[in-house]
Each structure stands twice: as C-alpha cells, then as structure tokens.
Design a protein around this nucleic acid. Structure first.
Lengths: 219, 219, 219, 219
DNA sequence: AATGAATGAGTGTTCATTCAT
DNA sequence: TATGAATGAACACTCATTCAT
C-alpha cells in the first residue's frame, strides 16, 4: 500500500500541474510585462481560477519568490564556481556582484520588490535577499581583510547598489547600457587610478550635507 | 485678441493662478505620497477640475517637469558655483553628480520617470535630463582629458547610475543608507586603491556569467 | 448672466439625470434584493460606470442615505401631523414609533446598517438616525413627564427596538407578522394590565440566567 | 475487516474526533468573528479539509445547529427549573423569554439564521426553533388562561421579538444596551400602567400610516 | 472517511483620460 | 478657457461549494 506504485502518487498530480502551469505562465508574463503585471491575467492564461493562483501564491511576492527559487540553483552553482575559482577575495566579490546583478535583472521591475524586501521583514523575498546579502558580506569581509576592499563599505549598501544598477537598465534601454560596465564602475568608480593615487590623500570623505558645498574634499 | 489691453489680461491671470495653485499642491502631494500619487487628488486639493489640471499638464510627466523646472534655478546656481570653485575637473564632476543625486531625490519615486525620460524622446522630462547629461558630459570629458576620469565611462551611464543611487534609498530606508556615501562609491568604487594599483592586473574578473564580457577593459 | 435661462442651466443636467437613474435603479434593486445587493449590478442596470455610481455615492451607506432622504419628507409630514393631532404625549410617541417602524422597513435588510449607524459615528446614516432618536426622545420625555411612559425607558433603546421589530419581519415572513402588532406589543407588552395590577408583586421574575439582574424594577 | 472487533471502531473514533475538533474551533471562531465567519478558516484551524467539514455539516446552519445542540441541555435544565419554581404562568413565560434571549445571543449574528429558520422549513435550525416556540406557546397559553397575558399575542411573534432583542444588541453596542431591560420592555411595554388604565381608552392611536390598523385592539 | 485543490463569480474601489456643457 | 461628471477597465482578494484522488 505504501509502495510508490505509479497510480498511488496521483493525488497531487493536478495540483502540481497547475502550480507548474502558473509558474510557466508567470515566467513568460513577467518577462513580457514586468513584475507589476496583472495576476488575474496570469491566472486566466494559465487556465485556472484566480483562487487557485491565490492558493498557491498568496501574494505577488510569493509568486516572485517561487519564480526566483527556480534560479537559486543556478546562482548556487555560480557561487560554487566563484568560491572554487577565485584566487583572491576581490575577484570573488566582483563575480558575486555580477551574478547578483544578472539575477536581479531576471524580470523588468524586479528590483523594486527586492528593494522593498530588503527593508521589510514581511516579504517572502526577504529571506532570499538576506541570504544573498550574507554571502555578499562574507566576500566583502574577506576582501576587506585582504585589503582589497574599502573598510567603510557595507554589504547591504552594496547589495542595494547592485539592485540599483539592475534597475538602471530597464527593458527600454537594455541595449544601450552595459551591465558589466556598471558593475565594473561599482568596483573601481569613475575616477582614474592615477589621479586617485595623487588625490586620494585628500580623501577625508566628509560627505557632509547632500547639498554638497565645496566638495573637492568629500570623495 | 492680440492687443495688450489691460482687461484682456485677466483671464490669463486666472489661468496663472490656477497653474500656480496646482504646482503648489502637487509639490506637497508628491512630497508626501510620492510621484505616483493620484492626480485627481491633486486637482481636488487645488480646488480645480481634473480637466483644468489636464489642460495645464497633459501628462504626469509634464507636471513633474514643471515642478522640477522650479528647481532648475537652484541647480544652475550650484552649477555656477561648481564651475567657479572647482580647481580640478574631477572635483567638479563629483560635485555635479552629488547635485544631481539630490535633485533626483526631490520626490519619492522620481527616479522612475526620469529613467524613462532618458530613453524616450516623448517625455517632457527628456529635455531636462538631456541637458543635465550634456553638462555632465562636459565635466566628464574635462576630467578625462585631465586624466582624472576613466576614458571608458560614458555620461549617460553615469547619469543613470546617479538616478539609480537615488532609487536605492527610497523613503523606507532613507535613514539607513548614506546618500553621499553612494555617490562616493560611484567615484572610487568599493575596491581599495592600494590593491587596485597592484591587483588591477588581475581584474580580468570576468564572471562566468554570459553577460559579463571582458570586464577589465570596460571598467 | 445670472438669470435662469434654459441653456445656462444645462451643465449638470446629465449628472442629475445619472444620479436620478442610479437612485431609481437602486430603489428597485434594493426592494427586490435587499440592501446587501450588488452595487456593481445597480451601476450596470443604471447604464453607468461603476465609477460614476461611486462618485455620487462613495459607500453603500451613502446610497442608502440618499434613498432614505427621499422619504424624509414623508416622515416629516407625518411628524407634523402627529404633533398637530395628538392630544396626549403617549399617543404621539406611539405614532412616531409606528412611523419609524414603517420607515425602517423600506428595504429588506435595512435595519442592519441602521443599527450600525446608531453605534458608529462614521456612517452617513448616523445623522439621520440621531435626528430621529432626538425626536423620539422629545416624545418620550413628554410622555414620561405626562406620567404615561415609564421613566426607565431610554430613547435609544426604544429606537433600537423599533429597528429590531422591523428586522423581525423580513421579506420571507412579511405576510405572517403584523407590524402594527409588534409596535403595539412594544407599547403595552404581552402582559395583561389586569394581571399586572395584581400580579406585579410577583414580578420578581428573575430568570436564573446570570444576565438577568433585579428584573422586577426594570420591567 | 468487517468483523466488529474492537479495533475496527477506530475509524469511527477518528470521525468523532474530527467532528469534535470542528465544533470546538467553530465555537471559538463564531464567538470571535460572528456566525458569518469563514467556514474555510474553521476547517483550517481545526486541521481538517474543507470537505471533511462539509461532510459533517453540509451547511452553515447545520454547523450552527450542532453548536446550539450543545446548549440544549442547559436550556432544558433552565426549563425544568422554570417549571418547578414558577408559581404563576406569567413568571414562567417571562423567565423562558429571558432564557431564549440569552440563548439567541450565544454568537454575534446568530439571530439572523434563526429568523430564517422560523420561516423556512429547510433549515436544520427549524426544528430547534419550532420546539422552543412550542414550549413558549405552552407558557403563553397558560398565562393567557391565567389571565396574565393578552390573548391576542402569538407565540411565534413573541419568539421573533426575542430574536429581535438579541439582534438589537450586537457586539458593537453590547455595553450600552441592557438585555434584561429589553425583555422587560417586552413584558410591560414602555407605557406606564397607571396611564394605561385610564388612557387605554384613547389608545386608538392609529398612525395615519397605512400599515397601522386598529391598533387599540391588537396591542 | 477524508482530503484539499479547484472553482470563478463576486466584492468594493481607483484612476487617467475624455468630453459635454 | 474651465469645469467636473462620466467613463469602464482594471485591481487584488474571498469564499462556499464541488470533486478527483
């Protein structure tokens, strides 16, 4: 009775089928219309009632989380590769940032709920984000100990900036903006190393008010 | 109709008064509720009909553009100061980026329509953005000629990244994220200069991700 | 300019027409389906968009209030008659209760929102109810001073009981229950006057129920 | 498998356990949220499938009936006490009405389905209600024969009025309205006995309302 | 006997935009 | 030129009930 004969397994077959159909349709729909698209439309296209979608994914964020979970494996694989391949912590951090940037660009508009998830605790995406931030923190801390990353940089800020770069190249401008270029900018900034070497001495980064008066010193 | 008799002016005065009231209310409303707030509410609060608001500002972007125009003077003043005070091009560029970041943070959610405006030509914000990008390009080019900015950096990307940093610190997380810090990160990146000087050779940090080309050169 | 020439008045003609159509349809719809019926259906039957209905009547209670306002005139007329005709306060009070009972039975399910309105302050029906309670209080106080009404009875309780009697005879049992009979019961109770005179002494009829305090006095 | 060995009983035990769990949860849930609460929530809280709940209690009324059945014992006990203690029929009737009022107030919103049950024959609550009405009729008839209750009063109307008084004091206004006071009002009405004795002659207080027939006699 | 997934119409509400006046 | 009423599709979300397993 308990042996997994093929006919016994069926009970949840259609549930799983529906869930998968919803995910498939959502994947496509979000790709085409962005993550702010209509959930009702997704349900309709999947051929299920709105309640069915809602049962599986109580909120839009839950649906997104499920969609992103499918990519988690890929990201974990990259993580393994990065850990295995990278000779220095700076390279590892850089690669991880690039991987995150790619991940956050899966759908148009995805950075928005991700940003929310970082500051809220309620979102189903929060756990995912925090996990990645933790990983990022490991890489960052290692790089800082290595001396290859500035000590004032914080993992959460860096994560948000990665989301921000993903946000910067929305569907409309995908062609024109180089994603890797932005992640690169995040690494070394726009300033030339040469100048920096001479000018960094004045890097008493005062930041001061956002209005930024005599900023020459506030690198 | 075209003669400038004094009594003909009156209707215009009404129109101007309405326009000003709308702008005042919109300024406050967008400050409180973000730029995605209801235009109807603004019209109601301004004591004008929806049609009146629509006549003056055919789109939400037009209204935003008018609101931002009021800040243009301030920005131009800062521009003059930057041009007068800055001894080197790098400092000037940095200050201009900070000024833009502040400008783009005027309202919650403002970066979104600005980003759209950069890639579209239709938006009333396009002209404004392009103007600022042009200015940014001047500073950037100067800095590049000075040798204090990387030659591969493009003005438009930099502008988008400034918007992105403004996006990154939304209302929810305003306290936790340091705005100036982000603009600073944009300048020098997260990588230590020291390491960079020696380690840049290993900056062939291409992630195995397909999106990541020969990053070392496009940084 | 200010004279009411026919063509100047028109601006709100269709608004008024729509409003009236909505009220007509709602009147009929609530009569048929009770006050809990679908507002969307009413909008559809009236041939207007849901937003139009919502503009005129932001809540179901607002719609009900408008519907009842049309009956206010009738109620006020009755009030005048009662005040003019009634020789004694007891009769006036009785008539007013009967008029209220009729009013609260205008639609099936109407007593429910009315009951809510009595305890809330938010409902558009609250004002109406409170007004009628005040009037009821006048009649009641007069009757109490006249010695024809028990001093322990409160206006609000009496009003609620009138609603309750209207609630008791819903659409399903309209035929079987005599409305006037219930209002009559409210006046003299089920106990015979004769017996009461002799038997009231034994009216310490406290049920063993905990809720029932020294009932003899509050009967 | 089919032989009545003791261990065969177990499945039945499961069913009973489920049924009891559902009843426990429903008791609590209806107490908190009123009888219109979500049955799905109850099933979920009880840890059973919706179908299981539905199998045990095909309708919401069936569930309510089961819940009220648990209170039938209590009510019957009160009935015995009333029959034993009451010296006169009027007192007995009064006590019974008070007991019914308490019973009908077990859950917020309970009077509604009870009212339906009185006029329908389909409801599982119908039998219960009719039983209590029959008992009420006994008390009423006795009181009428005793001369202590008006002969025109009908048991069903009186039952409905008891439900109505329970309806009148919903959750929102529980504090402000005295339940015993309402049952007391039902007994003697709002009119003073004194006045009634002299003034009843003028009780031809027919409101001009069409619904109001010769009220003097049907009081 | 039990499960719990699926249904799908239905709820109130919002909003940018149009257009008759 | 201004008005503000009308539009009506769109939104997320709920729930009693059915039924395949």
């Amino acid at each position: 009775m308990t042996h997994t004969s093929p006919e016994v397994r069926v009970p949840r077959a259609d549930a799983k089928r529906n869930r998968d159909r919803i995910l498939d349709v959502a994947e496509q729909y979000f790709t085409e219309h962005g993550v702010a698209g209509s959930l009702d439309q997704i349900a309709k296209k999947a051929g299920v009632g709105a309640g069915t979608l809602y049962r599986h994914f109580p909120t839009r964020e839950a649906l997104l989380a499920a969609l992103l979970a499918a990519r988690q494996d890929h990201l974990n694989q990259q993580l393994d590769i990065i850990r295995a391949d990278s000779t220095d912590a700076a390279t590892a951090l850089h690669r991880w940032l690039a991987a995150l940037a790619e991940w956050a660009s899966a759908f148009d508009g995805l950075p928005d709920p991700l940003r929310e998830a970082v500051s809220e605790n309620a979102s189903p995406l929060t756990l995912t984000c925090h996990g990645y931030i933790t990983t990022l923190d490991e890489f960052l801390t290692a790089a800082q100990q290595e001396g290859s990353a500035r000590s004032c940089v914080r993992a959460r800020d860096l994560f948000l900036l990665v989301l921000a770069t993903s946000w910067a190249r929305s569907a409309a401008m995908a062609d024109d903006v180089s994603p890797a270029g932005m992640i690169g900018l995040l690494r070394s900034g726009w300033a030339s190393t040469d100048t920096t070497s001479t000018g960094t001495t004045t890097t008493d980064t005062t930041t001061s008010a956002a209005t930024d008066g005599p900023a020459s010193s506030n690198v």
